[in-house]
């Protein structure tokens, strides 16, 4: 079974060298670009804008949520999403891009016939149709730690700009951002709280001159205006501004929140007010809530379960709760 599957995948693997036509122009102009590429599906379209969305593997709920929202909007606006199919931010961004019918490309640190990490198998299969799986390593080469910094140069190289969602102080993500700078790519970073170690990298990048990515549609506006001034108007994607603005999920969410709020009980509203994208334990929620009103711990526990059942909030790890993402 596994063998036949692998056979099938092997048949689909394509190969291209630097000298061939169709080799991505983005990469060709770089020093140290790979001599050859293996891929399944297709390679990113040189005539279309592309953004690399990268971030921490062990990300926070906030990072996961933002990666999803940005990637959705970016992909819906017709921009190609490039990333590394890793756990955490990378995989989440690519999943979101594919889910709205966008194009997404994964650059791997192993042969393209190997799905690494395994838990992203579903995404791996989806990407074959709605984008591509790319690697400079021949099929059969397993993932190795030393491959990843090298594969990161291809991720940033293939994209017009880099969007960093979450990065720790010393992380592969920050190394990629530096590499992207050397390659002359624009850097965008999602701001976060200064006390969050996962936002350290992004805040640092912004301090050093990266563009803050605050809202998806603003990011898209900003990115496309720069892109057009460099490469001219993109054809085929019309009225992106208007479209993206309308479908901006945060705005929609906020509007919907107003509507949903009408149907909530006073207690539920207060609980939602206390919750965050970062999961909080019941005792923390209880403490913050009891500042405002007199509530018994068992009443809060009941409320939290009822709200989870109604899909208003998420229960993380059994005992912690966060805003529904």
């Amino acid at each position: 079974m596994v063998n036949t599957e692998n056979e099938l995948i092997k048949r689909d693997i394509l190969h291209i060298t630097k000298e061939d036509e169709g080799y991505p122009m983005h990469l060709k102009e770089l020093s140290g670009s790979p001599a050859e590429l293996y891929y399944i599906g297709s390679l990113p379209d040189d005539n279309m804008p592309s953004v690399a969305i990268i971030g921490a593997r062990n990300c926070s709920g906030y990072g996961r949520q933002m990666a999803r929202e940005f990637a959705r909007e970016i992909a819906a606006a017709g921009i190609q999403v490039i990333s590394g199919m890793a756990r955490g931010i990378d995989g989440m961004a690519q999943q979101a891009a594919v889910s709205v019918g966008g194009k997404s490309y994964a650059v791997l640190g192993c042969g393209v016939d190997i799905c690494y990490p395994k838990e992203n198998k579903e995404l791996y299969v989806k990407l074959m149709d709605s984008g591509g799986i790319i690697s400079e390593y021949p099929p059969g080469i397993p993932a190795r730690a030393e491959h990843f910094p090298l594969r990161n140069r291809i991720i940033s190289g293939l994209a017009d700009a880099l969007l960093v969602i979450e990065a720790r102080e010393r992380s592969g993500t920050l190394i990629t951002a530096n590499m992207a700078l050397e390659q002359g790519r624009e850097i965008y970073a999602l701001p976060g709280r200064v006390t969050d170690s996962l936002s350290y990298g992004c805040n640092r990048l912004i301090y050093d001159g990266a563009y803050p990515a605050v809202r998806p549609y603003e990011f898209i506006d900003e990115f496309l205006s720069r892109y057009e001034s460099k490469k001219g108007k993109i054809t085929g994607v019309e009225d992106i501004d208007e479209k993206s603005r309308n479908s901006d999920k945060i705005a929609v969410f906020e509007a919907a929140k107003g509507n949903v709020y009408k149907f909530l009980s006073a207690g539920e509203r207060k609980v939602l007010g206390v919750l965050d994208y970062t999961p909080k334990s019941v005792s923390e929620i209880f403490y913050e809530l009891s500042e405002m009103e007199d509530i018994k711990i068992q009443e809060l526990l009941q409320l939290l379960t009822k709200m989870t059942v109604k899909h208003l909030i998420d229960c993380v790890d059994g005992c912690n709760y966060s805003i529904k993402s």
Binding site: C59, S60, G61, S197, P279, N320
Partner: peptide
């Protein structure tokens, strides 16, 4: 502890791989 370092699911403190 919830994980080897003890701080999961606070990912700002816990960097334990899944």
């Amino acid at each position: 502890n919830p994980c080897p370092c003890g701080y999961y699911p606070d990912r700002n403190k816990c960097n334990c791989p899944e």
